[in-house]
């Protein structure tokens, strides 16, 4: 694992890909490698891109990556698509819109399934960000699954969060503002060549007026037509501005602390779950309890207490 970790630190593509597979499969070996690379992280600007389905997130990320490449920066991209809760399978199609980047050695793209995680991300996302960061990527772009209202976990891991909207959502902006509207560091109104763009921007601005406090940073709204690359360099400028703001106000450390806290809690949760649900020690206990609960000989709370008592003793 030492060898794999040192290859990751050198930016070896194959090793980065292998380690991501190991963390996705929650392997013991992965933990050992992650322990080594942690102190080499913290250099990448992590940008989360979230928004409703069909808002053009993949195309936007492709254009952002191209923009960063023109500046000479290296880019890691993580595209997350939903895993079927029924079959466990997933169709990962974010790459379709990023084909031109496939052979650029300064870009690493990984497609991931949510594998049961809620919140628009995947359980291994923190690890994957650390791996890409440690491998020397200057910018890490994370695309969440298409979101509605509650999928706000992206703020736990991003330095800068983009919320992507499109014209024509109309009053639905009102409907979703409680959820994803609060997490934006930059708003993007994509597909800005469509009718209704001015109205969409005006609605956003008036919403921002309501919560704006004099002298504080106001969340910028950027119009883009990702398909044609329009507005993308302005967007990159706004993303950079946000990073400068975080540094100037000493907020970056605070955000990173939140990420590490979420990561720590996630690892503890994961380890605890696999410890409690260890089949070898459970020996069919769950099935047994479900039988008794179904027959009303026991209630689920007492059953849970019994399991925890046995497994955590």
């Amino acid at each position: 694992m030492k060898e794999l970790a040192s290859k990751v630190l050198k930016g070896d593509t194959r090793s980065v890909a292998r380690l991501i597979t190991l963390v996705e499969n929650n392997s013991r070996n992965a933990a050992n490698a992650m322990k080594i690379i942690h102190k080499h992280t913290g250099n990448a600007h992590v940008v989360g891109v979230t928004g409703v389905m069909g808002s053009g997130k993949s195309t936007l990320i492709y254009e952002l990556a191209r923009g960063y490449r023109k500046q000479g920066k290296t880019v890691g991209i993580v595209g997350i698509d939903p895993t079927s809760p029924f079959t466990g399978g997933a169709l990962l199609g974010d790459r379709i819109r990023m084909q031109e980047l496939a052979c650029d050695s300064g870009v690493f793209i990984r497609s991931m399934g949510t594998r049961g995680a809620l919140g628009g991300l995947t359980g291994a996302i923190f690890d994957v960000i650390e791996i890409l960061d440690a491998s020397g990527k200057d910018v890490v772009l994370v695309e969440t699954v298409g979101v509605g209202q509650g999928e706000v976990d992206v703020v736990k891991m991003a330095d800068t969060t983009l919320v992507v909207l499109v014209p024509g959502l109309g009053d639905s902006i009102q409907a979703i503002k409680a959820g994803i509207m609060e997490i934006a560091d930059v708003f993007v109104v994509n597909k800005a060549d469509r009718p209704g763009v001015d109205r969409a921007v005006a609605e956003l601005e008036s919403m921002l007026d309501l919560k704006h406090v004099e002298g504080e940073r106001r969340t910028p709204v950027v119009k883009t037509v990702a398909r044609k690359g329009e507005g993308v360099s302005e967007l990159i400028q706004k993303i950079d501005n946000h990073m400068n703001y975080l540094k100037e106000q000493n907020l970056l450390e605070l955000r990173r602390r939140k990420r590490y806290e979420a990561e720590l809690v996630e690892i503890i949760r994961r380890e605890l779950m696999s410890y409690i649900f260890d089949e070898k020690r459970l020996k069919g206990k769950i099935d047994d309890l479900v039988d008794r609960i179904s027959m009303k000989k026991m209630d689920p709370y007492t059953g849970a207490e019994e399991v925890l008592e046995r497994m955590l003793r």
Binding site: V16, A17, A90, L91, L92, R95, A102, S111
Partner: peptide, 21 residues
Amino acid sequence: EVIYTGLHQTPEMIVETAVQE
């Protein structure tokens, strides 16, 4: 888990994608 990349792939693109994924 199926990664679909769309049409008109060169062998280089396919292999690079296979490595990264």
